[in-house]
Design a protein around this nucleic acid. Structure first.
Length: 938
RNA sequence: GCGGAUGUGGUGAAAUUGGUAGACACGCCAGACUUAGGAUCUGGUGCCGAGAGGUGUGCGGGUUCGAGUCCCUCCAUCCGCACCA
C-alpha cells in the first residue's frame, strides 16, 4: 500500500488536539492527586529536587523550566522503574524585590508574594509537572519559618568541639568551665582569654554570656560587615561581587556593627572533605574549595627588642624562614602605633590614613601599585638573630591570618616586588636558582644558606622547620582558612524574625512553645529615624509574642530558609519537629538536585553547613544534602533588530542596511517570524512607528537582523512558556526544551526548530489511527520482528541516555523510533504501548491520552513498568561490515554474524569489490574487530 | 596569573569503552498530492570536483592498524578566583 492509500484508509481520523488533551489530564492529575507520595517502605526511594524559585513579579520565562522539565522527566522515569519518588516544589518567598516594591507602593510584601506565587503556580501547572503539591513549602509562611527559627536556636545553643569534631551543646561547655575553666577546651572560638573554674564562677551574667558568644555557632558580635547604604542592610560576602551588591549593583562599604553571625568557619575542614563524597561538577567543587581557601603551614613569632610585643605571622613556607629580610604588617594591625618610632610616626600615620580612605575594591584594583612605609622598628629573626625591618603595607590584609607576614623576597613575588621597590635586601636561600629577575615560587628547589635546613627539599624542610619551631615554643603547625563567618542579620523587614529578645541588651532565646515569632505589622517598611531596622517600628502589641526589654529587630538573610527546605519537603506538615527522624531516615539525601551554578558559594555552601550541623546533633542521618547535582545552562534570548535610517522614520531591511547610515532598534520578537517583520503589527506596536516607511526586499518582506543576548524585558526578546504552551502545547514545549542540546550548556533560545518536535508528536498520534469516535485502530497480534527490533533498540538507548542524564539525545531516539514505525506502517498495540510508556516522562499528556485509547486505565501509565530490554531482539543473521583500507572506510560487505575473525578475513579478501582496492597487492595486515569493523593495512 | 569548561555542516547538535564523522531536527533545493495546511509524502543536502576521486571535527605535532575521542604545544571563547602570605 503506498502512502497515499494509507492516508486515505484513515481519512476520517481524529487529529491531535493538544489543547483539549492537556487540559483534561492537568485536571485529572490535580483531582486525583496522582503524584502524591507517602513513605512506602516496600519500595526503594528516590528524591529528585529542583532549586526552588524566588517568585518574582516578572513570572517565568522559558529559561526557568529547563531544569524543572529535566528533573520532572527523571522523576517520572524513576517512577516507571519502580521507585517511590519524592518530587516536590515550593517557593523561596522572602526577599528584597517584594520589599522594595512594598516600600514604593505601601503594599504589604505578603500580598505581592501571594500574587506572584499564584502566577508561578499557574505557569508551572501548564507545563505538566508531576510535583506532589501537598508538600509545597514557602519560606515566608509562619508554619515554615517557625522551624527556621527553631534551627537558629539550636545553633545558638551549640559550639564546635575540635576534639569530638562535631557540634556539641553549650551546656556541656558550661559544665567544663565550671569544673576546669577553659584551658582544656579545644573549640572553634574567638575567645582568647584563659580562665580557671574559679574565675568563671566569679564572672557576672553579662561576662559569662559574652564569653559564651565567642563559642556559640550562632553568635552576636561586633564585626566588620559589608554595609550597603542603598539597600539599607548588611550583606554576606557571597552577596558582594566586585565591591558592589550582587542585587542592584549598589556600593558596599566596611562598617563595624553588632551583628548575628554563623560560625561556619568551624566546619571549614568538613566542608572541604565532604566535597569528595558528592557527585557535583569539578567547577562548583573548585569554587567552594577556593572560597574556603585552606592553606597549611605554621604560625611563627618574631620578638621585638625592648618591647613586650611579639608579632605572630602565618606562613605556608616555614622552609624559607632564613630568606626573611623584612616584615610587613597590615596598616590596621593593632601594634602599628605602638611599635612605630617617633621619627616615623608622621609618615606611618599618613600612610594609614591613605590606606583607610581606599575602599576594598580600590585596594584590589591597585595591585600593581606598590606602596608601604617603614615603621622604624625592627624584629629579631628567630633563628639567625638578625634585625629585620618592620614595614606596613596594604598588600597585607588585616583580615587574613594574623594580619602580618614574614617577607621572603626570594620565594614570594609580592615580597620580591616590595623589596625591589624599597631597596630591601634579597637573600637567596635556594641552591642553584637565579633570582635576579623574579622570585622563585616553585617548591622544587633545594634549600641552602639556611643552617639546619640546608640540603633539604621544600617538603621535608617544611616538616623540619615546623618541628624546630614547635620545639622552641615560638609557633606551631597550623591550618588557615580564608572562609569568614557568615553575617546572619539583615536590617530589612521581609525575612524571618529572630527568636530572640533582649534583657539589659543581653540576648535570650524565646521558648519553643512561643514559636513562631511572627513578623509584626509596621507603618512603613523603612528604617526608623535613628537608623534602627524596620521591625523597630512595630508597637509592642504588634508582636505575637514579646519578652524582656525588646525583641530582636533584625531579620534573617535569604539563605536561612533555603538552607534546609529540602528537609521540610519530607515532612511538610509536622508541627512537632522540622522533620521527623523516621521520614528523614526514609528519604535521606537528595538523589538528584538540578539548578543553576550561581549558588556555588552561597546556598550550596550554607545548606551543606546546616546539614552537617543537624547531622551532628542527631536530627538527621546524613551530612551532605545533595548527593548528585546537575547545573543547567542559561537560556539566552535571540533579539530581533530593525534598522532605522538616520534622522528619518524609514526602516531598511537587513540585507540592504549597509547602503544607509542606520540605527539598530530592538523589535519585539512577537512581531517577527523567521526574521520576517509583521509590518502592520510593528506600526501598531508603538505610536512613533505608526507612519513608518519600509524599504523592503524584492518580495516585499522586511527582514530583521538578530543577535544573541541575555533574556530581558528591555530587549523585547523574552519568551514566556505560556505563549508556546498556547501555540504548541506543553508536551511540545517540554520536548523542545530538551531537544535544544545538553542540559548543562548555555544556549540561545530559538523557536525555529519547535515545529519539528511538534510534528513528531503528530506523527506519533497518527500511528494510533484514531477514528472519529476516538477509538484507536491497532492490531493486538504478535508484533513483527522489525517492529520489535525498533522497540528494543529504543528501550536500550532510552535507558542508557536517561541514566547519564542525556535528555536531548532521548528526544532524537523517539524521533528515530517513530520514523521507523511509520515506515513499517506499524500499528501494533504491544509495540505502541511500550513506546508511550517510555515517552510519558517527556510528553506526559499525549501519552496519558494514548494510553486510555489503547484501552488502559486512566492515570496508570505513570506507574507502569518501563519496558525491559531484550538483547535477543536485536540479533541478526548478517552484519554489514564496514571495510576500511589504511583506516579509510571504502565499502561494506554483508557477512554472517556467526563468522569468526578468520572467516571474516577470508571472506573479505575473496570479495571482488575489496580486491579492486587491493589492486593485486598482498595486505600487510588485516585487523578484524568482530561485529564492528575490518581494517586492511596495505 | 591560577583553576574549570567549550571549540564538529548554513543552524541546534549526535558519535557512551579509540572502530562507518555529521545520527535526529531546523533550514535549503527538487518533486508528489491536495478540500491550500504552520498538513502529509518522496528524493537530495559537510566542503572541493563534471566525474573518478580528494578533503574534512579550532591550529600544529605525536601514539596507534585505526584518533572528534588518548598524549604534547599553541590559539579562541565563556565562567570562576585573584595581593590569601
Amino acid at each position: 500500500m503506498n502512502s497515499y492509500l494509507w492516508n486515505l484508509k484513515f481519512k476520517n481520523r481524529m487529529e491531535y488536539n493538544f489543547r483539549e488533551i492537556e487540559n483534561k489530564w492537568r485536571g485529572f492529575w490535580a483531582e486525583n492527586k496522582t503524584f502524591k507520595v507517602t513513605e512506602d517502605q516496600t519500595k526503594p526511594k528516590f528524591y529528585v529536587l529542583d532549586m526552588f524559585p524566588y517568585p518574582s513579579g516578572a513570572g517565568l520565562h522559558v529559561g526557568h523550566p529547563l531544569g524543572y522539565i529535566a528533573s520532572d522527566i527523571y522523576a517520572r522515569y524513576k517512577r516507571l522503574q519502580g521507585f517511590n519518588v519524592l518530587h516536590p516544589m515550593g517557593y523561596d518567598s522572602f526577599g528584597l524585590p517584594a520589599e522594595q516594591y512594598a516600600i514604593q507602593t505601601g503594599q504589604h510584601p505578603a500580598l505581592t508574594t501571594e500574587e506572584n506565587i499564584a502566577r508561578y503556580r499557574d505557569q508551572l501547572d501548564k507545563i505538566g509537572f508531576s510535583y506532589d503539591w501537598d508538600r509545597e513549602v514557602r519560606t515566608s509562611s509562619p508554619e515554615y519559618y517557625k522551624w527556621t527559627q527553631w534551627i537558629f536556636k539550636q545553633l545558638f545553643d551549640c559550639y564546635y568541639d575540635n576534639k569530638t569534631n562535631k557540634a556539641e551543646r553549650i551546656s556541656n561547655l558550661v559544665s567544663v568551665f565550671e569544673a576546669n575553666g577553659n584551658s582544656e577546651i579545644n573549640a572553634c572560638s574567638d575567645c582568647e582569654t584563659i580562665f580557671s573554674a574559679a574565675e568563671w564562677e566569679a564572672f557576672d551574667e553579662r561576662k559569662k554570656e559574652e564569653i559564651l558568644q565567642e563559642y556559640r555557632l550562632a553568635y552576636l558580635a561586633d564585626s566588620w560587615v559589608n554595609w550597603c547604604p542603598a539597600l539599607g542592610t548588611v550583606l554576606a560576602n557571597d552577596e558582594v561581587v566586585n565591591g558592589v551588591s550582587e542585587r542592584g549593583g549598589h556600593p558596599v562599604e566596611q562598617k563595624l556593627m553588632r551583628q548575628w553571625s554563623m560560625r561556619i568557619k568551624a566546619y571549614a575542614e568538613r566542608l572541604i572533605t565532604g566535597l569528595d563524597t558528592v557527585d557535583w561538577t569539578e567547577s562548583i567543587k573548585d569554587q567552594q574549595r577556593n572560597w574556603i581557601g585552606k592553606s597549611v603551614g605554621c604560625s611563627l613569632q618574631f620578638q621585638i627588642p625592648n618591647s613586650k610585643f611579639r608579632i605572630e605571622v602565618f606562613t605556608t613556607r616555614p622552609d624559607t624562614v632564613y630568606g626573611v629580610s623584612f616584615m610587613v604588617l597590615a596598616p590596621e594591625h593593632p601594634f602599628v602605633d605602638q611599635i612605630t618610632t617617633a621619627e616615623y610616626a608622621e609618615a606611618v600615620a599618613n600612610y594609614k590614613k591613605e590606606a583607610s580612605l581606599k575602599s576594598e575594591r580600590d585596594r584590589q584594583a591597585d595591585v600593581k601599585n606598590i606602596t608601604g612605609q617603614f615603621t622604624g622598628a625592627y624584629a629579631i629573626h628567630p633563628f639567625s638573630g638578625e634585625k629585620v625591618q618592620i614595614w606596613i603595607g596594604d598588600y597585607v590584609l588585616a583580615s587574613y591570618g594574623t594580619g602580618a607576614v614574614m617577607a621572603v623576597p626570594c620565594g614570594d613575588q609580592r615580597d620580591y616586588d616590595f623589596a625591589k621597590h624599597f631597596n630591601i635586601e634579597i637573600i637567596n636561600i635556594f641552591a642553584d636558582v637565579d633570582i635576579s629577575e623574579a622570585a622563585y615560587t616553585e617548591k622544587d628547589a633545594v634549600i641552602a644558606n639556611s643552617d639546619f635546613l640546608n640540603g633539604l627539599d621544600a617538603k621535608s624542610a617544611i616538616k623540619k622547620a615546623i618541628e624546630v619551631i614547635e620545639a622552641k615554643g615560638i609557633g606551631k603547625g597550623k591550618t588557615n582558612y580564608r572562609l569568614r563567618d557568615a553575617v546572619f542579620s539583615r536590617q530589612r523587614y521581609w525575612g524571618e524574625p529572630f527568636p530572640v529578645y533582649y534583657k539589659n541588651e543581653l540576648p535570650y532565646l524565646v521558648d519553643d512553645v512561643n514559636l513562631p515569632i511572627e513578623l509584626p505589622e509596621v507603618d512603613k517598611y523603612l528604617p526608623t529615624e535613628d537608623g534602627e531596622p524596620p521591625l523597630a517600628r512595630a508597637e509592642k502589641s504588634a508582636w505575637n509574642f514579646s519578652q524582656g526589654h525588646r525583641m530582636e529587630y533584625n531579620t534573617m538573610p535569604g539563605w536561612a530558609g533555603s538552607s534546609w527546605y529540602f528537609l521540610r519537603y519530607m515532612d511538610p506538615k509536622n508541627e512537632q519537629a522540622f522533620v521527623s527522624k523516621e521520614k528523614a531516615d526514609y528519604w535521606k539525601q537528595v538523589d538528584l538536585y538540578i539548578g543553576g551554578s550561581e549558588h556555588a558559594t552561597g546556598h550550596l555552601l550554607y545548606s551543606r553547613f546546616w546539614t552537617k550541623f543537624l547531622f551532628d546533633q542527631g536530627y538527621i542521618g546524613f551530612d551532605e544534602p545533595f548527593a548528585k547535582m546537575i547545573n543547567q545552562g542559561m537560556i539566552l534570548g535571540r533579539s530581533s533588530f530593525v534598522y532605522r535610517v538616520k534622522d528619518t522614520n524609514k526602516f531598511v531591511s537587513n540585507y540592504m542596511k549597509d547602503q544607509f547610515e542606520v540605527t539598530a532598534l530592538h523589535a519585539d520578537i512577537s512581531l517577527v517570524d523567521n526574521d520576517k517583520l509583521d509590518i502592520e503589527g510593528f506600526k501598531a506596536w508603538r505610536s512613533e512607528f505608526a507612519n513608518a516607511e519600509f524599504i523592503c526586499e524584492e518580495d516585499g518582506s522586511y527582514i530583521c537582523g538578530n543577535e544573541v543576548e541575555k533574556m530581558s524585558k528591555s530587549k523585547y526578546n523574552v519568551q514566556t512558556p505560556d505563549e508556546l504552551v498556547e501555540k504548541f502545547g506543553a508536551d511540545t514545549l517540554r520536548m523542545y526544551e530538551m531537544f535544544l542540546g545538553p542540559l548543562e550548556q548555555s544556549k540561545p533560545w530559538d523557536t525555529k526548530g519547535i515545529n519539528g518536535v511538534h510534528n513528531f508528536l503528530r506523527k506519533l498520534w497518527r500511528l494510533f489511527n484514531i477514528d472519529e469516535s476516538g477509538k484507536a485502530n491497532v492490531s493486538a497480534e504478535q508484533p513483527s520482528k522489525e517492529a520489535l527490533k525498533t522497540l528494543h533498540r529504543t528501550i536500550k538507548k532510552m535507558s542508557d541516555d536517561l541514566d547519564r542524564y542525556s535528555f536531548n539525545t532521548g528526544v532524537s531516539n523517539f524521533m528515530i523510533c517513530v520514523n521507523e514505525l511509520s515506515d513499517q506502517k506499524c500499528n501494533n498495540k504491544h509495540i505502541l504501548q511500550d513506546v508511550i510508556i517510555m515517552l510519558s516522562p517527556y510528553a506526559p499528556h499525549i501519552c496519558e491520552e494514548l494510553w486510555i485509547k489503547l484501552g488502559n486505565k486512566e492515570g496508570e501509565i505513570n506507574f507502569a513498568t518501563f519496558p525491559k530490554f531484550d538483547e535477543a531482539m536485536l540479533v541478526e543473521a548478517n552484519i554489514s561490515y564496514p571495510i576500511s583500507f589504511n583506516g579509510k572506510m571504502r565499502l561494506k560487505i554483508e557477512l554472517p554474524t556467526a563468522f569468526g575473525p578468520k572467516e571474516v578475513e577470508e571472506a573479505v579478501l575473496a570479495n571482488a569489490d575489496a580486491q579492486k582496492y587491493l589492486d593485486g597487492n598482498t595486505p600487510k595486515k588485516v585487523i578484524v574487530v568482530p561485529g564492528k569493523i575490518v581494517n586492511i593495512v596495505m
